[in-house]
Design a protein around this nucleic acid. Structure first.
Length: 638
RNA sequence: GCCGCUUUAGCUCAGGGGUAGAGCAACCGCCUUGUAAGCGGUAGGUCGUCAGUUCGAAUCCGACAAGCGGCACCA
């Protein structure tokens, strides 16, 4: 006797063990047809799964959120079958469901072409049409290895050896002639796969994610429960593309890149306005938080980098120069050695601490060519960096203050959802384990006392200390690390810096490295995508554009612009001999916050007709009233 | 760095072994204009760079560079 409890609380009795499919059938023919899987005592299983004892059961259909992963995973299998049917000799490796879709990695000598994708997708349609039952089988390990080895599937043999733990049940899913090692669960048949999938792109990917391994060919696809969802997803992608900071950067005349300066930004006047606004903003916030600002050299002797440990641990990322006198200099990839050198000037007392030393330092890192990506990944960037020198006792409070400052600053840009990562000691590191224990403890305890959730990333810290990373998600769903907070006792040690303690002894200060925006270049890029180019008034490079109706008002328009500028508003006039509709269109496309139309009527009464971004018409306003309004908005940063 | 793709006018793109084409922008006229593209004309390119095949290369082959999509790496 088996009692199956359904989600509505009702209980069904069966004389003996039943499958999920049979339970579904007992409820109704429609449900039996719609059943994709079951959830038995909270565990996702195939519809063929046999329930042996009393259990709760939910039938999973395409309507359930859990179904999406199954659909995507099945789509991966169907794609792999299609590929192997079309291109014999291709080896399969792994093919998981991922966010929004799936991929499968193949090993094959000849590369797939974009035309192949269309053919593969067509074959997938056929396999779905064949409606092959998907059957779970349990194989004996050695037999499985022999069978896959016999098919020339070397990667599958490796997967059985390395990934499936001894003693773990080895399941194989079969659909028609095709089968794959897989944990499952899967849909009942290929025909249950909704026709809402699409192959998206080709990519290379290292076997098991290691760049020392051979490169496989990955095919990405997307799959959904219904066609409308697929269409909505494709629409989302298009919308995301529209706010791509590289496109908007060109459209809005913010910056450009050139072949002869890969990874280096040419900031146009409007982009530089944004950049400077961020720096000015940060200066205000830091001054209020007790920081002082300094500046250190860009180019320093190799010996300094040997002392700091960068020469040994960071060499491959460094730009170096050799001058006529044979000295080797390196462009700074980080600001910290400069900051420590600054601290080392003169004698410090415990009364001086904490010293919060900020620097908008431009750092240079030789990033791998394939990593470059618009403003988000460049080789030369400016950090809103600061180094806090404090006593060991002050360290935790300083960490808390930095975390609070970061989160507060992000709010001014509308970033409320910030994730924190704690990265601990890497293999490549300087300093003793005892020191690392202390440093990692300070960071985690600061977060815990503040009640901040975080995710641990073992082994991902900087070579001189553990770090917190503050991660924002951009418009296209990519995560970008912005702020960072690192605690460090190693550089103070290496540079032998100290302070005179209250008991007159020499003590070693602790050093905190922190950046809030991280890279100004990257942060501008993120903001462009975040705002889709519609910058709030306080950041907009051009805050108001005065448009005259005809030549008659040219002098008036110029006078209004002068008045606005005198009031601290970034304003210009478009005096071109175009119709007002044309001018409005042009500057609307430039996403300006305010368009000010001036004709004869406005000229008579020291007024402007105000058109707000988004086609809102405020009607005629007195120029002084308009100035007051904009300045209020700028001050409020909204 | 690795795999694949791309590179034609300021921008978006078409074309394609016999020495280049559209729209928009630019410039010049006309129009003097009231809330998202008024009309006409002119000019603009050694088709990413360097080699090679060919009577002839922007087109075919190769190398390199940059960019794009991923992977790896990372602020």
């Amino acid at each position: 006797m088996v009692n199956v409890t359904l989600p509505d609380g009702s209980v069904r009795r069966f004389d003996s063990a039943v499958t999920v499919a049979e339970v579904a059938a007992s409820i109704g023919a429609g449900l039996a047809k719609a059943a994709l899987a079951g959830k038995v005592d909270g565990r996702l299983v195939d519809t063929s799964h046999r329930i042996e004892q009393d259990a709760t059961l939910a039938i999973v259909t395409a309507k359930d959120a859990e179904a999406l992963d199954l659909i995507r995973h099945d789509a991966a299998h169907v794609m792999a079958q299609a590929v192997q049917e079309l291109y014999p000799g291709t080896q399969v490796t792994i093919g998981p469901a991922i966010e929004d879709g799936f991929y499968y990695d193949f090993a094959r000598d000849t590369p797939f072409t974009p035309e192949d994708l269309a053919a593969i997708e067509k074959r997938m349609d056929e396999i779905v049409k064949r409606d092959l039952p998907i059957v779970r089988e349990v194989w004996e390990r050695e037999t499985a290895k022999k069978i896959f080895a016999g098919k020339g599937e070397d990667y599958k043999v490796q997967i059985i050896d390395d990934i499936i733990a001894p003693g773990e049940e080895l399941s194989v899913y079969r659909q028609g002639d095709w089968f794959d090692v897989c944990r499952g669960p899967h849909l009942p048949s290929t025909g249950k796969l909704p026709k809402a999938y699409k192959l998206m792109k080709l990519a290379g990917a290292y076997w098991r994610g290691d760049s020392k391994n051979p490169m496989l060919q990955r095919i990405y696809g997307t799959a959904w429960a219904k066609k409308e969802d697929l269409e909505a997803y494709l629409f989302r992608l298009e919308e995301a593309e529209k706010r791509d900071h590289r496109k908007l950067g060109q459209l809005l005349d913010l910056f450009h890149f050139q072949d002869n300066a890969p990874g280096a930004v040419f900031w146009h006047a409007k982009g530089w306005s944004l950049f400077q606004d961020l720096i000015n903003y940060m200066r205000q916030r830091q001054a209020a938080a007790g920081y002082e600002e300094v500046n250190t050299p860009d180019l320093m002797d190799r010996a300094l980098w040997e002392l700091s440990g960068h020469w040994l641990n960071y060499r491959e990322h460094m730009f170096t120069t050799q001058t006529e006198d044979e000295r080797v200099f390196a462009l700074k990839p980080m600001n910290c050695p400069g900051a420590v050198s600054m601290y080392a000037q003169g004698i410090k007392s415990y009364r001086d601490l904490p010293i919060r030393m900020a620097e908008f330092g431009k750092v240079h890192r030789y990033e791998p060519s394939g990593a470059l990506h618009g403003l988000l990944r460049v080789r030369h960037f400016t950090q809103d960096d600061a180094h806090i020198f404090c006593t060991e006792e002050q360290m935790e409070q300083e960490c808390k203050d930095v975390v609070a400052l970061i989160l507060d600053i992000y709010k001014d840009f509308g970033f409320e959802d910030v994730r924190i990562k704690l990265s601990t000691r890497p293999d490549n590191r300087i300093g003793s384990d005892a020191v690392w224990d202390k440093l990692e403890g300070a960071l985690s305890s600061a977060l815990e006392h503040m009640g901040m959730p975080y995710v641990l990333f073992p082994g991902e810290g900087a070579f001189y200390g553990p770090k917190l990373e503050f991660v924002l998600r951009d418009a296209i769903g990519r995560d970008w690390q912005c702020g960072t907070l690192q605690v460090d006792m190693n550089l103070p040690e290496r540079f032998d810096i100290s302070y005179i303690a209250a008991d007159n002894s020499h003590k070693r200060p602790v050093m905190l490295h922190r950046a809030l925006f991280g890279s100004l270049e990257r942060f501008v890029g993120i903001l462009i995508e975040h705002y889709a180019g519609n910058f709030p008034v306080w950041l907009a490079p051009v805050q108001a554009m005065v448009l005259n109706i005809s030549d008659k008002q040219a002098a008036y328009a110029t006078e209004v612009v002068a008045k606005l500028r005198a009031a601290g508003i970034r304003a210009s006039a478009d005096l071109s001999n175009n119709k007002i509709t044309y001018k409005i269109r042009e500057h609307s496309l430039q996403k300006l916050p305010y368009l000010l139309v001036v004709g004869d009527k406005e000229m008579e009464s020291w007024a402007v007709s105000v058109r707000v971004r988004g086609n809102q018409d405020l009607g005629a306003l007195n120029v002084d009233d308009f100035i007051a309004r904009v300045n209020t908005e700028i001050r409020a940063r909204n």
